[in-house]
Amino acid sequence: MKQKKIINTLNIIAFLLPGLILFIVVLIAPIALSGYYSFFDWNGFGAKTFIGLDNYKELFTSSAIGFLKALRNSLLLAALSVFLQLPLSLGLALLLGKGIKGERAFLSVYFMPVLISTVVIGQLWLKIYNPSYGILNVALTKLGLESLTRTWLGDVKVALGACFVPTLWQYVGYHMLLMYAGVKGVSPELREAAMIDGATSWQVSRYIVIPVIKPIIKVSVIFAVTGSLKSFDLIYVLTNGGPLHATEVPSTLMINMLFLRNRYGMGSTIAVMLIFLCFAFALLINRAFKEER
């Protein structure tokens, strides 16, 4: 009996070990290495100098690095995602969930941008925003709204918002699909019972459907917030953090430190801060939804 238990335990270990090793090598080790390098002043190929927490101090105090501004931009993107993108996705999910005509076609259309490469989307929106021939400025001019035309990606006041629009366009379908699956999962009996009791369509959505799909909304909020914190590709293609760091986010700053400034220690410090922030926000969101429940 005892021998069988040992064999079972060994079997479990044998089956878990490959996955565990992969998990450690691919995910845990790079994070641990980032933490290790964050304590050094290192250009990536010369000698490393141990400097303790100096990189962390510099990260939060140096105006030349501008981490706080990058973080603020990320949080702004996160807020826009949560309060603009997700309600829009929810609205679309509720609308399509009612089984309107052309439901499948609309689902495909809204989900299509998710399938397109971000670099392609970036190039597409670069053309849309082009100050000379971009469709946005041309359309505004044709509509007699010339005063509204501007250099969308070159104006510090609107560049971040201009970067958010393609993000919204790209991911609204993704969140919509998640929520749509939840909406479709709501028991028809619940809806019918509410309708018989005299509830309007809005009241059914507000008091029946939304509470039922709250776990999915929580997942969407976590994806939206952590996605905004680590946003990189679209901003890299559209503005590369400019103009004047108006669209700088921690990931573009990290790439700048690692590969342009040769500051591997500082780049690793930003990586560690991103890890910490993503964990912290995931915990906060979990707690917020738990308390509400």
């Binding site: 995910l27 080790a29 790079p30 994070i31 290495l33 980032s34 390098y37 964050s38 990536g44 190929f45 670099v119 976590i222 952590t226 996605g227 914190l229 680590k230 990189f232 590709d233 293609v237 990931s251 990290m254 790439i255 690692l258 590969f259 591997y264 780049g267 690793s268 930003i270 990586a271 560690v272 991103l274 890890i275 993503c278 964990f279 995931a282 915990l283 979990n286």
Partner: peptide, 28 residues
């Protein structure tokens, strides 16, 4: 939480680790 963090950090850890693993960061 762990999974959310790990997902969010796939980019960060890639750039922050040693140079060998940093190279593919410029995917495009």
């Amino acid at each position: 939480t762990l999974l959310a963090g790990v997902m969010a950090l796939s980019l960060a850890a890639c750039g922050g680790s040693d140079a060998g693993s940093s190279a593919p960061a410029s995917t495009d």
